[in-house]
Design a protein around this nucleic acid. Structure first.
Lengths: 364, 364
DNA sequence: GCGTATTACTAATGCGCATTAACGAGTACT
DNA sequence: AGTACTCGTTAATGCGCATTAGTAATACGC
């Protein structure tokens, strides 16, 4: 025989004893001798709504306090037609096991800014769609549960993202990204940052430089190259060394031949692997080049963890935390129906110890 | 004249253009040519309740998929159902800038296990920042949006937690905790782990040991002490050195006097600061005690980051990732209305290099 | 005194969903 | 042919709150 219980909630109105249920606005209203609507108004404390007498306000607040009234967030969000929920979706686990993955600093900023704005975060795991739940091509659509969603990682499927964007669902991608047209993103201003590094080298007197980069087409790489080029435009000239495997191809001999050609500074891009910088450092060491003396080195980003304890490289730091915050700001703006905010976040220049004036030449 | 707009939601039903709003069950129903109730039934996929024809089921699922329908979590909660959302609430920032005491390893386990079970995570923010959400007496109550909530950190206000627990809201605290009666928790089995470490020392031949601990009453400390006592029960005897500032109070002289008393092994508890272990290592060094030779040292936990590169201490590792997973398992059980699962998670013994047989005595 | 404001509140409605009583259409059995 | 069931679907309801239209009461102006 089925118990005809109404909902799972125990003891209601006349309180048949047992646990007292959480009080509702209705109970507060009864105690204060007013209507539920009045309670809502008092507690909302709007300035523009109907006026409430001081007397009533007092009674309601008193009643609410004495009952220990606490609003039900679900009901509140339902009635207000917004969730105050921002999604965070990464295509790998948000918390990869290899500790202190680079997402961490982003999340710091994301959390802080979201908290600041009263949003909570929903962490969608790539696997929450692949694991127990349904996989399939519409896996991404789960993020619609939030008011908007932040995407991390390069492997976002263009198709599905495009669909979300086309539906007007607020989406912000962390990192510049052109692919689904209309996708909003925030990213570090690699162009300016690279330009600034080159400018710094130019100030020191360098006129001829080489950029070492890996062989891919990620915006992060091309932006750096552009900044490199722009920085050199009026003050010198440079060339780009591009290799799929810099650690193999960047030989000490090549470095020496560049030096012989009058190159006095080398700039490496930062990548996931840090291969360019590692290759550059090693080749320089093998070639017997002492760093700020014989040639200057710069890194367009931060050194990989395994090279962290060498001399601090001249270059710039990616403001990951601020990026996370900026992403949330933009997402919040989109959710509010406003224009997207500024997508570029400035990197901070790092003087470092791997650059100095070029060695004296015959001009001297 | 007042525009009779319904809520702030733009473009509805016949879609006057512009942004498409999130689809509701009603839209799915319309597209599938059935009623909203039917949609709900199909999507709920209950085995009891009214039967649904295969034909209808197909149509509904197809419509839902093509619209990218996702249930509104707030509405679901309100209608007394489940969300598939588990909350995570920490009383400091979940992603602290100060990496020292990071919840990261826990979160790895939490995320993995949650994904495994088809739950998404809601990170309730604003606990620390006091941002827009400000810390009222209802700061905690936001978590009711989720099906259940995980709490991290020691500073959980007993009052509010008690309220949630009393209301039957599924709550699991990470770390043993007695305070709000009835609170569920998962924690590392410090008692067994400490016992095992002591047992190991006893096996090596140690009979008299001293436990160095800080002066507080956290369960994590008292549990370790209990394990220490239990481990010694039948095999030897020990005493406890307790200090609010071990680095000041634990002098080399004291160490020597213990040695003179026949103490051959020292055990330090792990705390946030790592003070006990640091003090012990330093005092031993200052006293000219060479580690495994003159006396054995053990650490009930993991060394602080700044001592990580010394010899690996004998002791145990706290299985943080597994703890996170266990917490989610328990929370899921509670949400499902089942009994709470096993709260204790075993630590893994670490042989280390700071222990060995006691030095030869006059008995020799 | 009768409109017109103004103030202080309440009734009614709906947010999106789950749930259940009710209903219509078959089919089976007296 | 009438009754009893079963099956598939829908109408209706309510969760707890915010919002708005509406009402009652009082103050004001001429």
């Amino acid at each position: 025989m089925e118990e005809p219980r109404k909902r799972a909630r125990p003891g209601r109105s006349p309180a048949p004893a047992g646990r007292t249920a959480r009080p509702r606005q209705a109970e507060v209203a009864r105690l204060a001798g007013v209507s539920q609507a009045t309670v809502s108004l008092v507690l909302a404390d709007k300035r523009q709504g109907p006026a409430i007498s001081e007397e009533t306000r007092r009674k309601v607040l008193e009643a609410a306090r004495s009952l220990g009234y606490v609003p039900d967030p679900a009901a509140r969000r339902l009635a207000a037609a917004r969730n105050n929920l921002l999604g965070v979706f990464s295509f790998t686990a948000t918390f990869p096991t290899d500790v202190q993955h680079s997402y961490y600093p982003f999340l710091v900023g994301v959390e802080r800014e979201a908290a600041e704005r009263g949003y909570d975060l929903v962490l969608f795991t790539g696997s929450s769609t692949g694991g127990a739940g349904a996989a399939g091509p519409d896996a991404l659509s789960r993020v619609r549960l939030a008011d908007g969603c932040l995407f991390l990682g390069r492997h976002a499927p263009v198709e599905e993202l495009g669909r979300l964007v086309a539906d007007g669902f607020p989406v912000v991608h962390l990192g510049r990204r052109d692919e689904p047209a209309g996708l909003h993103w925030v990213g570090a201003d690699y162009v300016s940052a690279a330009r600034e590094v080159v400018g710094h080298l130019a100030c020191l007197g360098h006129r001829r430089m080489v950029l070492i980069r890996e062989d891919d087409e990620a915006p992060a790489s091309t932006d750096r190259e552009r900044g490199f080029a722009e920085g050199l435009e009026a003050v010198g000239d440079g060339s780009v060394f591009r290799s799929a495997d810099p650690e193999r191809d960047l030989t000490p001999e090549r470095l020496r031949s560049w030096l012989a050609d009058g190159v006095t500074a080398f700039v490496a891009e930062e990548t996931d692997t840090g291969a360019a910088w590692r290759a550059l450092r090693r080749a320089a060491a093998d070639a017997g080049i002492e760093c700020p003396r014989d040639a200057s080195l710069a890194l367009l980003g931060s050194p990989p963890a395994d090279l962290a304890d060498g001399p601090e490289p001249t270059g710039f730091d990616i403001p990951r935390t601020r990026l996370g915050a900026a992403a949330v700001r933009m997402l919040a703006a989109l959710v509010a129906g406003e224009e997207a905010t500024e997508p570029l976040v400035a990197c901070t220049f790092r003087p470092g110890a791997t650059s100095g004036p070029p060695p004296a030449t015959e001009d001297h």
